[in-house]
Design a protein around this nucleic acid. Structure first.
Lengths: 86, 86
DNA sequence: CGGGCTTACGGTGTGCGTAAATATC
DNA sequence: GATATTTACGCACACCGTAAGCCCG
């Protein structure tokens, strides 16, 4: 698992769209789709329901989004801690 | 910044050696060296003192090691949370 | 049909290991 | 001189975007 995958998943989940989520990170929709699929495969869990017209989070997806956002925030904070001597 | 960089830095820092740190992750010493250099460049901070025979952490390196280990543990925990419904 | 996700395909860039150079004790 | 890090070099593979295919309203 890599942070880039979490960044992409979070963007897609927030936007409820691969196309718009990818755009937020200057990536194509296909790249966003592949990144989320890889994450699902690695975890062995479905994160997004694609059945409907509108993209929806599964319960596992909800949990991942919460955790991922906290981790990503923490990584951002890490930069400051390291560079500026906390 | 990516988790792989943090994993490599943490391994190298714990082992006090690029060679042994790399081995822990089945990577060559040169790969470990490059990964840490890239991290230092991205953060604009020196993380390891290479001057002496023995590798030493700078204050920034100490802070990063602490933070990185917590983040990496949290990512490990995330797997369980997502897969097993917390 | 239209909008959006997935998959195939080809090209490019990143990242690896080997090996050579450099440095420290 | 032995051990360890850095750098050069070539190569393989991973990843991206374009575009085609599919599915659902």
């Amino acid at each position: 698992m890599e942070l880039e995958q979490l960044r992409i998943f979070a963007a897609v989940a927030r936007e409820r769209s691969f196309t718009r989520g990818g755009q937020k990170l200057y990536l194509s929709h296909s790249t966003a789709s592949r990144a989320v699929s890889a994450l699902e495969e690695e975890l062995g869990v479905t994160l997004l329901k694609r059945s409907n017209r509108v993209l929806d989070l599964t319960p596992a997806g909800e949990r991942l989004l919460t955790e991922a956002e906290e981790i990503l925030n923490r990584v951002e904070a890490l930069r400051e801690i390291v560079v500026s001597g906390q």
